[in-house]
């Protein structure tokens, strides 16, 4: 009796575990909460575009000239008439050849690897104060205009779902999409790790006057 229970229990436990596993492998819909999304519902939100090949770009098109008109109305106040950027707002042009400089300037022209990403970003996030309010045609036109400002396409260029994935962006081949870290490796030395005489302060934040105050009301400091 006693010994058979000893054997049986593990077997029952294994069987139970198997049953639980089957339930845990969870057939789709096993909870049954929510509603199946209809094609119309999906279409309403399905705005993403894949940068590399433009999958997801909608029908429609836009010219550089039409883009210039929309840009002047909706974008120039922040990004400057020619994409030079007002104040601290981002530049949309320039910086070509600067990526190895002391002060690189990554922009659509110098840094972005994929043109369809530009359509996607303008469509989802711009203009800043009224995002996702532009028509697909106007987003195509703005994309054409900004690519043209960056000398990436000629003035006659018409942006659409076929032409955008073919635009060769300058920095396309300079991205490494696998993380090479850890890229530093040291042993944690405990004593006499460096010569005390060699310990030297190479930079200090003292007196730089860049740090907002951390007591009292919020600081409003602007850079000198």
């Amino acid at each position: 009796m006693y010994s058979s229970r000893k054997i049986c229990l593990p077997i029952i436990a294994i069987l139970l575990a198997c049953a639980a596993n089957l339930a845990g492998a969870a057939e789709p819909g096993s909870f049954g909460y929510g509603s199946v999304a209809t094609p119309a519902q999906i279409a309403g939100w399905d705005i993403d575009v894949r940068g590399e090949d433009g999958t997801g770009l909608p029908p429609g098109n836009g010219t550089v000239d039409r883009g210039a008109e929309v840009y002047a109305e909706q974008c120039a106040a922040c990004h400057g008439t020619f994409g030079e950027g007002e104040g601290r707002f981002p530049k949309l042009v320039g910086g070509v050849g600067s990526l190895r400089d002391e002060r690189p300037e990554p922009t659509v022209g110098s840094y972005w690897p994929f043109a369809p990403t530009l359509w996607d970003y303008i469509n989802r996030a711009m203009p800043m104060q009224a995002p996702h309010t532009l028509s697909a045609d106007d987003v195509y036109a703005l994309t054409a205009y900004i690519l043209n400002l960056n000398d990436l396409v000629p003035h006659e260029f018409v942006a659409d779902r076929n032409s955008l994935p073919k635009v060769k962006m300058r920095n396309r081949d300079n991205f490494i999409w696998t993380d090479p870290r850890p890229d530093t490796m040291t042993k944690p030395c405990m004593n006499d790790c460096v010569n005390a005489a060699d310990v030297r302060i190479s930079s200090t934040a003292e007196g730089r006057n860049l740090t907002p105050r951390t007591t009292g009301p919020l600081d409003t400091m602007q850079q000198k």
């Binding site: 894949r50 940068g51 994929f114 990403t117 530009l118």
Partner: peptide, 16 residues
């Protein structure tokens, strides 16, 4: 929204 796909999207926030 969560959408499953075969490849990454290379969105602006993972390129620029």
């Amino acid at each position: 929204r969560i959408k499953l796909g075969e490849k990454p999207w290379h969105t602006r926030e993972e390129t620029s």
